[in-house]
């Protein structure tokens, strides 16, 4: 995969409604700028992010998937993010078997008060995916 400076990656972001979605709103209210490559999807909890949804995103043309949840211990549902924390490494090992770079999926914690951090995470991830280049479509996945 060749990195190209004018490649604009398409990224799907799964944002937990309580911390990260609110954090993303705070980034907006504070007018923090970040690349517009990520399309946000609101879920109630990062624990709702079924690995098959991530695979579908990659299959449907996303170059990267960002899963954002509350910091461990802060989950609105006590421990939903702990489940995600365990699922994501397993998902990554599956990705590897599909020949997809596991770096295309990233799990991060962003709290409702971390607007700056939200922008920073999106920026970093966008640049990382930009460097990885476009994701080859795998039609049969999901």
């Amino acid at each position: 995969m060749s990195a190209s400076a004018d490649f604009e990656p398409t990224i799907i972001g799964f944002l937990c409604r309580w911390c990260s979605y609110t954090g993303a709103d705070l980034a907006g209210t504070s007018r923090v700028k970040y690349p517009p490559n990520m399309i946000p999807l609101k879920v109630m909890c990062s624990g709702r992010v079924d690995p098959s949804l991530v695979l579908k995103a990659l299959a449907d043309g996303a170059d990267g998937v960002l899963i954002l949840g509350c910091h461990p211990g802060d989950c609105h549902y006590h421990e939903g993010n702990h489940k995600t924390m365990r699922r994501v490494p397993m998902l990554k090992s599956v990705l590897q078997q599909y020949g997809i770079d596991p770096a295309r999926v990233r799990l991060e914690w962003v709290s409702a008060s971390e607007g700056d951090r939200f922008a920073e995470v999106v920026h970093d991830f966008t640049e990382e995916i930009r460097a990885l280049g476009p994701q080859k479509r795998v039609e049969s996945v999901a």
């Binding site: 879920v43 109630m44 909890c45 624990g47 709702r48 079924d50």
Partner: peptide
């Protein structure tokens, strides 16, 4: 309504209303 069970169910038997 966190939906953790939905993501867990291997049969897809659980659905979260609205999600």
């Amino acid at each position: 309504g966190c939906g953790t069970c939905v993501a867990t169910c291997p049969a897809g038997a659980i659905q979260q209303q609205g999600y």
